[in-house]
């Protein structure tokens, strides 16, 4: 049975699509133009939510990894893999949309400052995760190793957040403004964008887990 033939999933897709359109409307027509960064500032309304979605996805990878090692249930392995794939897609989007913003604002697309570097490391850890999944050998052993790697990899997420404290301020070019200190006309569309990306993430995870379970059934003896 197709995933989107189910009424519940059609509603999820409809909801995600409508919310995405509302989000775009808010970004373009409701949020004020930033006096210095102009349109480039609006990249943040999907750059930061992409980062949030990536970190949430990797958190779920860690939880699924713990539950898989504990319960030995294949569904947790599927959830971990699905979440790792979606998380890596969003982390890749963060690593590309960041430089698109930085080029006009900093004058250069990339600098080796703490938050960018630690985010790149997180992305590369998950590239290794997929290499392990692809070339690790016996499927049952690969699932265990991947669960362990997913748990360890999440340690990089808090490092990304506190990385700004590791280096002196003069080495940091990332915006350090706390969002809760932003004016409401900037803050509320931003929070809405976070919500929309979370809904999209949930839909993607549910769909990917469904496809992975189909794959496992087709490949099973």
């Amino acid at each position: 049975m197709s995933f989107f033939s189910q009424r519940k999933n059609q509603l999820w897709l409809g909801l995600a699509s409508v919310l995405m359109l509302i989000d775009l409307y808010l970004i373009i027509f409701v949020t004020p133009i930033h006096p210095e960064q102009q349109w480039a500032q609006r990249i943040f309304y999907f750059h930061v939510p992409s980062a949030w979605t990536g970190f949430l996805a990797y958190f779920i990878v860690m939880i699924a990894g713990i539950l898989f090692l504990w319960k030995k249930d294949q569904k947790w392995d599927n959830l971990g893999l699905a979440s790792a794939e979606v998380g890596t897609l969003f982390t890749a989007l963060v690593l590309v949309t960041g430089p698109i913003w930085a080029k006009p604002i900093w004058g250069q697309a990339w600098t080796w400052e703490p938050r960018l570097t630690t985010t790149l490391i997180l992305f590369l850890i998950f590239v290794g995760y997929f290499m392990l999944r692809a070339y690790g050998g016996h499927p049952e052993r690969v699932s265990r190793y991947a669960a362990a790697l997913g748990i360890i990899a999440f340690a990089d997420v808090p490092i990304i957040f506190i990385s700004v404290k590791f280096w002196l301020p003069e080495f940091q070019s990332h915006p350090q403004v706390e969002m809760n200190k932003q004016a409401p006309e900037y803050l509320y569309p931003f929070l809405f964008s976070l919500f929309v990306f979370t809904i999209i993430y949930v839909l993607m995870i549910r769909y990917r887990s469904h496809v992975l379970s189909l794959k496992n059934e087709a490949l099973s003896e």
Binding site: I43, F46, L93, W101
Partner: peptide, 9 residues
């Protein structure tokens, strides 16, 4: 820049 980034996402 905005349109490039949004189209990409």
């Amino acid at each position: 820049y905005f349109l490039s980034a949004y189209t990409l996402v």
